[in-house]
Design a protein around this nucleic acid. Structure first.
Lengths: 199, 199
DNA sequence: TCAATTTTTGACACGATGTTCAGAAAGCAT
DNA sequence: ATGCTTTCTGAACATCGTGTCAAAAATTGA
């Protein structure tokens, strides 16, 4: 059979960058085809539909991102780990020119209620899955910190709180375009959760 | 001159409900015209453009919402005020069938980087303005609480933290459709900020 | 009654989008 | 070489979007 002329993963990366920058609805297959130097028809042949393409591109991103987070959460004191976590998160939101924000948050806001309008249940599951996995990672980190005597609260509640703040940062980033503000909120959150007195 | 045949404010309300449920991009003027029983041309004549219509509809909503928040934040102990604040916020996110989520967050994620793609700078300012006003309201509430000896932290930092969590709740709502979870996070946040021991 | 002014109406122009499809092209196994 | 299978190509299709406009309709004031 005839071999594929383009690199599957590279197209996924290019497509995701477009989705990230302009949203799923705001990105057309023509946009992706142009940037990837691939014919529209080929995209359909290879991925099936726009939504399927997005899902594959998102899964690829989510895997990479989760691996980076896991690494950041694996070394140093609990405070250092949380600091590294927020650093990575904020840097991710601020990546690109202009900054692209949080792709998961942006995707979630494109979910549609009815059939055919906006992203569907499969996409919702993909977004929720990444958030859940991040929460689990944080919970393990807090539990390990507790075992080392660096934390004495409820790991599950603390992890959920951190994740919530993280999602909030993704929103404020869009509203104010103020990176120092985001970092200040992150630092304050760490103090709050760890107890600023005995941190 | 010929009088208008439709109620300006009612059209604004109907339009905003559509924008809220389906997003700005996902709502066409035909949708609004149908629901409002008004001709498309009349909408253009009365509001100028889709974006202008959205902006007016959003301002109307923001005014109402802010007034409700101010009222909720005005009575009882600091803890009671914050509880009422989160109650109102979560109820707002969960209003509608199916729940419509947070309109401000949804709008923010539709902002476009380039000209003509997505909402523009005027919309961003409107969203940011509402968030700033809510933050100011919270800061006043914390300051008043501090004066009564119910709080001993930094009012500005605490207000920003609460707002960040609020924005995060708007995201998690979309991801998990789990209202008890949202309320649990809110309660935990109040404990954290007020200090669960001496709350 | 009649002119002035504004709104309503319905069609029109124009462009974009997701998707499909038939035919050409390119490897691979025999 | 020669089928067989898969991919590529580019056009076609059907739909839907925003925005515009000229003519008709409705109201007010002279």
């Amino acid at each position: 059979m005839r071999p594929r002329e383009f690199d599957h993963d590279e197209v996924l990366r290019i497509a995701f960058d477009q989705f990230w920058r302009k949203g799923v609805r705001g990105t057309s297959l023509s946009d992706i085809a142009r940037d990837a130097a691939v014919q529209r028809g080929s995209l359909y042949n290879a991925f099936g539909s726009k939504e399927a393409l997005f899902l594959q591109a998102y899964e690829r991103y989510a895997g990479d991102y989760l691996a980076a987070l896991e690494k950041a959460l694996g070394v140093g004191s609990l405070r250092k780990r949380l600091t590294a976590f927020f650093d990575l998160t904020i840097s991710n939101f601020r990546s690109g020119t202009p900054p692209r924000g949080c792709p998961t948050t942006r995707g979630l806001m494109e979910l549609g209620a009815a059939e055919g309008e906006g992203l569907d249940e499969n996409a919702r599951r993909a977004f929720a899955s990444l958030i859940s996995r991040i929460t689990a990672l944080l919970q393990d980190t807090f539990a390990a910190g507790a075992a080392r005597g660096e934390f004495d609260g409820n790991p599950a509640a603390a992890a959920l709180h951190i994740v919530t703040v993280t999602r909030g940062l993704g929103v404020l980033e869009r509203a104010f375009d103020d990176e120092p503000q985001l970092r200040k909120i992150a630092a304050h959150t760490i103090d709050l959760v760890l107890g600023s007195k005995g941190g």
